[in-house]
Simulated scan of single mutants.
Amino acid sequence: MEPVASEVMDSKFLESMAGKQSFLKRMFTVFISQEPKRLREIRKALEEGNEEQLRHLAHSLKGGSATMGVARVRDCCLALENAAKAHDLKAAEALIPKLETEMRRAYAFMFNYLDEH
């Protein structure tokens, strides 16, 4: 089932991009090409117990997802960043499945948008 825009992307962000289709497509393409690597790096930092790297990566992905209007990913990243700051790797580990789910939803929306435009 295809994700509904309002469940994945911030509607105000999408409205702000009206008439900027080529720019939005470039943004989506960059996000899709860059962020899976960052997600792998987040998993690796967690596996290695590297709290500082985990915090840094979560912070970076939070910024990228906020820029893209992907609020649920941003919220997951904020929680992950806070868990790393609190030295709570168990909490961080528990957040990864939700982050991965929200990332998949964002990718699906973006791929669909690119296919349609």
Rank of each mutant, 00 (worst) to 15 (best):
T101A: 08
L24W: 11
L57M: 05
V4A: 12
R72T: 10
R38N: 09
T67L: 09
M1G: 12
I42L: 11
A84Y: 07
Q34Y: 01
Q34I: 00
Q34D: 15
G19P: 03
F23S: 09
P36K: 01
L24S: 09
K12I: 06
L80V: 06
K25N: 10
F23N: 06
P97F: 03
L39D: 07
Q53E: 15
A79V: 03
R55E: 13
L95R: 02
E15M: 04
M27I: 14
S60C: 07
V73G: 06
T29I: 01
N50H: 10
L95V: 01
F109A: 06
P3V: 04
L54A: 13
R43C: 13
A83T: 07
A86I: 07
K98N: 09
G64E: 07
K62V: 10
H87F: 13
E41P: 02
A108S: 15
K85I: 12
A58V: 07
A94D: 14
A106V: 04
R72H: 11
M103K: 01
K98A: 15
L114I: 15
A79S: 15
F31K: 06
Y113P: 10
V8S: 05
M17C: 05
S60R: 10
K98H: 06
H87G: 09
D115K: 13
Q21C: 03
V4K: 12
M103N: 05
L39Y: 09
A86P: 05
A66L: 12
H56M: 10
K62T: 12
Q34K: 04
S6N: 11
E35C: 10
R26T: 12
S6R: 07
R72Y: 07
F31L: 11
E7Q: 13
L89P: 05
E47I: 05
F13H: 14
Q53I: 04
L14D: 04
R38F: 01
S6W: 04
G63D: 09
Y113L: 12
K44Q: 15
N50Y: 04
E102F: 04
K44P: 06
L114F: 08
A83F: 08
K44Y: 09
I96F: 08
V73A: 12
P36T: 06
M17G: 04
